[in-house]
Design a protein around this nucleic acid. Sequence first.
DNA 1: CCAATAAATGCACTTCCATTGCACTTTTTA
DNA 2: TAAAAAGTGCAATGGAAGTGCATTTATTGG
Lengths: 138, 138
Amino acid sequence: MKEIETFLEDKKVRPTAMRVLIYKYMAEKEIAVALADIENAFTKADRTTLYRTLKTFEKNGIVHQIDDGTGITKYALCDKGCNCEIEQDLHLHFHCLNCNETVCLTKHKIPHINLPEGYLAEDVNLVVKGICEKCSGQ
Amino acid sequence: MKEIETFLEDKKVRPTAMRVLIYKYMAEKEIAVALADIENAFTKADRTTLYRTLKTFEKNGIVHQIDDGTGITKYALCDKGCNCEIEQDLHLHFHCLNCNETVCLTKHKIPHINLPEGYLAEDVNLVVKGICEKCSGQ
DNA sequence: CCAATAAATGCACTTCCATTGCACTTTTTA
DNA sequence: TAAAAAGTGCAATGGAAGTGCATTTATTGG
C-alpha cells in the first residue's frame, strides 16, 4: 500500500485513496481492464472519477491505453521500462476470442515494419486475436 | 457499370442502383472510407441503407472493415485475392496523422508473429500511424 | 492554525457513432 | 399476377467517451 503511494508520487501523481485502490486493482488483475470493469469493482465511486484517474495515470506514464478492436478502450499498467512513446518499445496485445480478455505480451516486441517509400511511421498498433493459453489449455 | 453489376452478382449480391453506386464510389476512392463519407457523397440516400449495404458487402467478401484506431469504422474494397479471413493474407493498414486518411498497404503482409506457448492466433490487426507519402512529400 | 488556492471528486448532460425495429416499396418468383 | 422476399427509409435506441460546473478535499503560504 505504502509502496503504491510512493510509486504514484514518483510519477507526479497525488496518491489519493481512490487512485491507490485503482492502481492496486489493476496490479492484481493481470489483464487489461476497461473503464466498465473498474466501475463494477468500485461501485461507490463515480464513473467520471475513475475515467479521469485513468487519464491521469495515462498522462503520467503509469498505464497505457489499448485498442484491442473490441471498440472498448482498455488500460494496462506499464512495465518498469515501458516507454509507450518509443516505437521500438511497443509490445503487442493479445485478445482472446473465448474469454474476451486482453493481455499485454510485453516480451513480444513488434517486429520492424517495412513501409513503402515516403511513409513515416510514428506509432504501431498490433493486436493478435485468437485463443489464449488459459482457454486453449482446457 | 455493367462490370460492377456482374461483379456483385458473382458475389451473390443483388446489384441494386444504390449498391452499384456505392461500389463505384469506393473503387474510385483509393482510401478506406467511413460511413459518414458515403453519407456525404450520397445525401439523398438514407444512412441505414448505406450502413446495411456495407454490411452486406462485408458479409460477401466485397469489402473488409478496418479499425484504424480513430474509433471510426472504415471500409475498403478487398483486392482480387484478398482472403480477409486467412491469417497469411492479412495486410497492414496505414493511418496518416496529418490528412487523417487510412489506406490498405496490400503489398505489405503482416510478418509472422511469434506467440508464447499456448496462444493460438486467428486474426491479426496491424495499424501503423504516421505520415503518408502524400503528406511527407510536401 | 487559518485563510486562500489548487486539486480531486461527483452529478448531470452532451455527443458521436453503431445498430435495430418497423413500416413501406421494389423486386423476384411461383 | 399474387405472394414472398429483399431492399430501403424513418425514427429511435444504446453504449461508450467526453465535458461543464458545483462541491468537497487537500495543499500551502502567511
